[in-house]
């Protein structure tokens, strides 16, 4: 992919982003052949579009169907350019993710809100954010925010608190932090 620039008059984003789509579920099926599974998962990821400005983001977003219109076990990944949305990518390998389960009636708005917070640098954790992921399931969907360094407690706490605030989550909403190395060991 060639370089991407904001057009004249557009509002540049702090980072360029890539939107990916995958048909697989959040959990991988193969237990024994990690490498084969990694390749298989990589192949299931398709780039939908890219954006370097707010206007390019909306132009992309307005062409997408809403998360509630997606079938179960579909994934949307909005990641910084240069980071592939896989645990094994060097940008993610030492990182982890906050995962929130959301009812279908909340997911459209929540996905839009989390994407906007990332694009607008609302998490205030410098370069720590890698991307956000939506996994459609049944009856609830999963929304996750991936960061670079699972051991960076200040950043992970700030991401959690920002998520609670922007999504207006009740204080008792379960939120789980999963380091990717644990996910890799399990698979």
């Amino acid at each position: 992919l060639g370089p991407l620039e904001p057009a004249p008059g557009e509002h540049k984003l702090q980072y360029n982003y890539c939107l990916w789509f995958a048909k697989k579920g959040c959990h991988r099926t193969s237990i024994t052949q990690v490498k084969a599974t990694e390749q298989e998962y990589g192949k299931s990821l398709h780039i939908v579009g890219r954006c370097a400005s707010v206007e390019q983001w909306w132009s992309l977003y307005c062409h997408l169907i809403k998360p509630t219109a997606l079938k179960p076990y579909r994934e949307l990944h909005l990641f910084k350019s240069g980071i592939k949305p896989m645990w094994e990518d060097p940008g993610n390998a030492k990182g982890g993710k906050w995962v929130i389960k959301l009812r279908k009636n909340k997911i459209d708005r929540a996905w839009e809100t989390v994407c906007m917070a990332m694009l607008g640098e609302q998490f205030l954790v410098g370069p720590e954010i890698c991307g956000v992921v939506l996994c459609t399931r049944f009856p609830e969907d999963l929304l996750s925010v991936w960061n670079r360094t699972a051991t960076d407690q200040a950043s992970t706490a700030r991401i959690r608190d920002t998520l609670r605030r922007i999504l207006n989550l009740p204080p008792n909403t379960p939120m789980e932090y999963k380091p990717h190395c644990d996910s890799l060991k399990k698979s």
Binding site: H11, V54, W58, S59, M116, L119, Q122
Partner: peptide, 21 residues
């Protein structure tokens, strides 16, 4: 360097700008 920060209201305002279509 300076970070480019946009809040929700600002981003929503640009959703309907002619450049966003």
């Amino acid at each position: 360097g300076t970070r480019i920060i946009y809040d929700r209201a600002f981003l929503m305002n640009l959703k309907n700008s002619p450049l966003s279509r």
